[in-house]
């Protein structure tokens, strides 16, 4: 599953930050998931649990959903991505590479595929909370 690859990225990046900041343990990792990529939350959650490192033994993984906000560069229309509006094959393609949304989706007002993904594209690491040795 693609979610596993992204979970790996979250764990690796969080480990790097913890090391940089001298954390001796991580208590919470907050991940923002953009709806455009249509990530399966259960799978991502499961993958994160499985991939956790000793530093994260007690860490809570919090997943937050961010709606896919799109804005047309031609007419300025702003709208929210609705996964129900695209077919299965298109959905799968966007899941792999969210930018191919430009191939399958267009502005609801003027039909242009030249839109901006304002937020809610994919997986981002929002915050890490942890404990330093002298805390």
């Amino acid at each position: 599953m693609h979610e596993w690859a992204l979970a790996e990225g979250v764990i690796q990046t969080a480990s790097g930050i913890a090391e940089e900041q001298g954390l001796e343990k991580i208590t919470e990792i907050v991940v923002r998931i953009g709806e455009l990529q249509q990530i399966e939350h259960d799978i991502l959650q499961f993958a994160l649990e499985q991939l956790r490192t000793p530093l994260m033994t007690d860490a809570k993984f919090t997943l937050e959903t961010v709606p896919g906000k799109l804005k047309c560069r031609i007419c300025g229309e702003e709208w929210t991505f609705n996964p129900k509006g695209v077919g299965e094959e298109e959905s799968e393609a966007i899941h792999f590479i969210p930018e191919v949304a430009h191939v399958y989706i267009s502005c609801p007002s003027c039909d242009s595929p030249d839109f901006q993904i304002l937020e809610g594209r994919g997986v981002l690491l929002a915050s890490i909370t942890g404990v330093k040795p002298d805390d």
Partner: peptide, 28 residues
């Protein structure tokens, strides 16, 4: 190739989108 995901349709991507798509492909 991107063609697996865009099929034979045109993919009108601007700079930031191109970078994002490249990072995604390389990362997964």
């Amino acid at each position: 190739s991107i063609t697996f995901f865009a099929l034979d349709k045109p993919a009108p991507l601007r700079g930031a989108d191109v970078s994002d798509a490249i990072i995604e492909l390389l990362a997964i």
